[in-house]
């Protein structure tokens, strides 16, 4: 029945074609193209370029202190975000769940910052950090508020974390809330009857029931945090100097703002991709084992 089989294939292709074509043009081919260019010394303008093997990768990791610094700075940021964002979001979700009447109100308020674009959030906080907090410190006795929130790289790391959390916690909270709603009330009641304290019942009953949500939220945070760009761009612009530059900014600068070394910038992009892939696989692997145990 070859005729029928051709028909099947034709109809499959007809349904899939629009998505496949547009996806290939703007995502698949650029992905492959980027990997290809990462092995060349292409400068984006010149038609002539040559293969230089792993040259770009070696240069990025060995001879580019700015890139290595950005890499480490991003790693530190990712670590802080994974822990703080998930702990805070889970805490808020669990606490909100204990309320009956004010539940909706708190949920609305905590999620609201997430609606605002990251770059707009960063601008709002620039105002808070550069204007409001110093004045507040002066007028009240809260001298700890008088920091160079944006000017001092040691402090501005935490400013970046604060804005990211402010913007992002609500999203994770929604996912945790949805998961908590799936935990049967009867199980929690049984734990209480057996004499479990609220904390025990959370650790032994609730948490194992929502590991799936924890996996998802860790994954989302990990992926998002490695790609951080807007918060830093809006808040410090990577400065002072390049002290708060993250990987994505370093790539952006390499490719678009000064030297147009497309091949070299592509190699950095590939490094970012490989790191994300690696961390994601490790995280999912570990969590899957945990889920099975639970």
């Amino acid at each position: 029945m070859p005729v029928k089989s051709y028909k099947h294939i034709a109809s499959l292709l007809a349904f899939v074609a629009p998505a496949l074509i547009i996806y290939s043009l703007f995502l698949l081919i650029p992905t492959i193209g980027g990997m290809y260019y990462s092995f060349t010394d292409w400068n984006g303008l010149n038609a002539n370029y040559s293969f230089i093997g792993l040259g770009n990768f070696i240069e990025a990791l060995r001879e580019d202190p700015d890139f290595v610094h950005a890499l480490l700075f991003t790693l530190k940021y990712v670590l802080f975000m994974i822990v703080l964002q998930n702990v805070l979001a889970l805490m808020l979700a669990v606490f909100i769940e204990t309320k009956t009447r004010s539940k909706g109100f708190f949920r609305t308020i905590f999620f609201m910052p997430n609606m605002i674009s990251t770059i707009i959030s960063a601008f709002m906080w620039t105002f808070v950090f550069s204007q409001v907090l110093p004045q507040l410190a002066e007028k009240t006795a809260m001298t700890f508020l008088d920091q160079l929130w944006i000017g001092n790289p040691k402090v501005s790391f935490y400013s970046i974390i604060i804005v990211s959390l402010w913007n992002g916690v609500g999203y994770m909270m929604i996912i945790y809330l949805a998961a908590l709603q799936g935990v049967p009330q009867s199980l929690k009641e049984a734990a209480v009857i057996d004499g479990a304290s609220p904390f025990q019942s959370f650790r032994k009953v609730t948490l194992p029931m929502i590991t799936h949500a924890v996996t998802i939220c860790l994954f989302l945070t990990l992926n998002g945090a490695f790609k951080v760009f807007e918060v830093v761009y809006g808040l410090t612009g990577g400065g002072p100097g390049r002290s708060t530059q993250v990987i994505t900014m370093n790539i952006y600068e390499e490719a678009f703002s000064n030297n147009f070394r497309y091949g070299y910038a592509s190699a950095k992009s590939v490094i970012l991709f490989v790191i994300i892939l690696l961390f994601t696989f490790i995280q999912i692997g570990v969590m899957k084992r945990k889920e099975v145990e639970a």
């Binding site: 998505a19 995502l27 984006g44 790609k227 790539i251 992009s269 590939v270």
Partner: peptide, 24 residues
Amino acid sequence: IFSLFIASMLVPFHSIMIPLTRMA
């Protein structure tokens, strides 16, 4: 075809932005 779609889900935007601007 389905795996082809899934394959790129982890690719960060910043890794394709350079070739993407050329393509565009």
